[in-house]
Amino acid sequence: MRIPIIAGNWKMNKTIEEAIQLVKEIKSNLKDGVETVVCVPFTALSEVKKEISGTKLKLGAQNMHWEESGAFTGEISPLMLKEIGVDFCIIGHSERRQYFGETDEMVNRKIKSALKHGISPIVCVGETLEQREANIEKKVVETQILKAFDGIVAEEVEKIVIAYEPIWAIGTGKTATKEEANEIIAFIRKIIMNKYQQEISDKVRIQYGGSVKPDNITDIMNQSDIDGALVGGASLKPEEFIKLVSF
């Protein structure tokens, strides 16, 4: 049985002091049977790790480089994240692809590096509004998945979380209907089944992301193939995030 996973992507928000205060409110209000992750800015990772130590709350980073060290000014390596005690890392978020030129090849390298160092990747895929209106959303997502998982062996797949985030629904207030989200996520599961096998696809956890809020989380989580949510804005408000993880 797949354990639901709710992850908050704080993006470029919260100072260290603000981050500590936020996790203080979250960590004592966690629901059993749901894996809860906070993906905080690099500057707050160490202090948040100290604050959540001994709790069920897991720590995530928002990005990483695939190399362990080197002349990559401004980047963070998997060794640095592992030393802090990071459990998860978001890889290939649409904002990284759009604003910083991340390619499917870079996403693939990052996934392999994260797995090598015992960090579970949260791999983001999703189409633009133009691609959906052109009825090529499945082709776009399939290409992203196949390139992301190139060279990934079956034994590693269940350590990966996939986040389907239609780009047109991120931070816009628009949300794919629960049926639209479940259809694509079921399609992603089928891609994994075809590349590996049924047993593997049954184990991989696939989240939905895109304007997830307390008033739509129950409908989303009641779908057959959706195992969780990657949450943006609502994860910055403790009362909202607590409601989300208590769906």
Rank of each mutant, 00 (worst) to 15 (best):
A181P: 01
H117I: 09
N194Y: 08
W10F: 08
E127T: 06
S77W: 07
L57W: 04
R109P: 01
L22N: 02
K237A: 10
Q198L: 10
F149I: 02
I5A: 00
M221Y: 03
A19H: 02
S28W: 12
W168L: 02
R205F: 07
E102G: 01
H93L: 02
S120N: 12
A186R: 10
I184F: 02
K110I: 07
V48F: 06
V153T: 15
L236S: 06
E199I: 09
H93D: 01
P238G: 08
N63C: 09
E240V: 04
A154N: 09
T172I: 14
G60V: 06
E75S: 14
L59E: 01
E180Y: 04
E133N: 14
N182M: 03
L57R: 10
R97E: 04
P214G: 08
E179H: 05
E199P: 03
R2L: 10
N29C: 15
K203W: 12
I170V: 06
S211Q: 01
T73Y: 12
E95I: 09
I206W: 02
I226Y: 00
I160S: 00
I84E: 08
A154R: 07
K14P: 01
T15F: 07
Q223I: 09
F187K: 04
Q98V: 05
G101P: 11
I111L: 04
N29V: 14
I217Y: 03
I220N: 01
T172K: 11
L244D: 01
E83A: 12
I90Q: 01
E130S: 15
E158T: 11
I52V: 05
W66T: 09
M193N: 12
